[in-house]
Nucleic acid binder design. Structure first.
Length: 158
DNA sequence: GCCAACGTTGGC
DNA sequence: GCCAACGTTGGC
């Protein structure tokens, strides 16, 4: 099957592209939305590229690139009563929540801001730009992905 | 900090 | 299985 492309959101105050650059890779724990989980569980393959998006930020936007670097595995935080992600309804024999590990690929010299994405006619229809879209893990069309990358490289233009 | 949009929960 | 209440997301 053809490679797919992804976008994952993180609040930079919580975990930013700089954090990922320093740590090189991280387990994407804490996803508690079924659609987002299903993408990680069913569709993500190792090596596929991920737009790393800073949400709830000043400004928000795509901050860099990561790649999927593990198969889906149970998210350990669901079993930890001290974790904010603890889920009493989950069991080790049939874990509700899985996650993947992503690893650092690059940090864009300049954030590709949400405003800039919205201004780009060719990105019309991108899920991220749909009003009310809140999915923290979402697929990205190959064409949209390529165009976001091109925006990231077009540094001179503001 | 506000609040609209959305997902989840739980009473019935 | 409906749907109101509630919690969360995330732009502004």
């Amino acid at each position: 099957m053809a490679k797919r492309f992804w976008l994952m959101k993180s609040e930079p105050e919580v975990y930013s592209i700089e954090d990922l650059e320093r740590e090189r890779e991280t387990g994407w724990e804490g996803v508690r939305n079924y659609q987002a989980r299903n993408f990680m569980r069913d569709d993500m393959k190792q090596g596929e590229l991920v737009l790393f998006y800073h949400s709830n930020a000043e400004p928000s936007g795509v901050a860099g690139l990561a790649k999927v670097s593990s198969d889906p595995t149970p998210d350990a935080s669901q079993f930890d009563p001290h974790s904010e992600y603890f889920d009493a309804a989950s069991s080790k024999t049939s874990p509700k929540w899985v996650h993947v590990t992503i690893s650092f690929v690059e940090r864009f010299d300049e954030l590709v801001t949400l405003a800039r994405l919205k201004a780009e006619k060719n990105l019309a229809g991108m899920a991220l730009l749909r009003p009310g879209q809140r999915l923290s893990v979402q697929p990205v069309d190959e064409g949209h992905f390529a165009r976001v990358l091109r925006l990231a490289k077009a540094r001179a233009r503001v």
